[in-house]
Amino acid sequence: MIVQELIFYAFSLVMVFAAVAVITVRNPVYAVLFLVLAFFSAAAIWMLLEAEFLAIILVVVYVGAVMVLFLFVVMMLDINLVPLKEGFIRYLPVAAIVAVAMAIELLMVLWSRGRFGVDMFPVPPPHSADYSNTRELGELLYSNYLLPFEVAGVVLLVAIIAAVALTLRTRPGIKVQNPSVQVRTRRDASVRLVKMKSEKPRGA
């Protein structure tokens, strides 16, 4: 038990530190890398909650794919930090209001379940060794929540098509390669073999 607690505090510390660093470091590439670290620590904490499927999916999807593309974009940007920090004082009141509103919302959720304290949130019973998180999630998703699941899938599909449609533009006058034609090409189309008698060297 004590080992688990130590692991929990270690990863929580790293996560809080990384999360703060995301918004305080000056270099945007560092910020993205700290965000990766925060995701990773969150995944480790989920692992402690016996939610291994969610934890690994967080690493696969966010760390392995989304953040790679993020890093990709941030590295290509030529970000000048000075104009970014210019409006700090001007936007501070609005930001403070948004922050306070979010904090109140979080507190309201906690309040509705009773006050804080360990006794309000009892330790869930540990699962047996053959309990499969993935199977459980799959059974719920494909039975009770089938309709929301399908709807989410359709929404994502629409988003994909919209993203493609927004960026796809056909410009006239551009030469495009057609790979299937390239692959089907025959030797006769580009090479002509000419049979000719061998020439005698001059002066022989």
């Binding site: 291994e52 499927f53 690994i56 690493v59 696969v60 392995g64 794919a65 499969s132 993935t134």
Partner: peptide, 12 residues
């Protein structure tokens, strides 16, 4: 139990 997922996560 989630060995295959773990491998996918690490190779990524």
């Amino acid at each position: 139990d989630a060995g295959l997922l773990y491998v996918l996560a690490l190779t990524s």
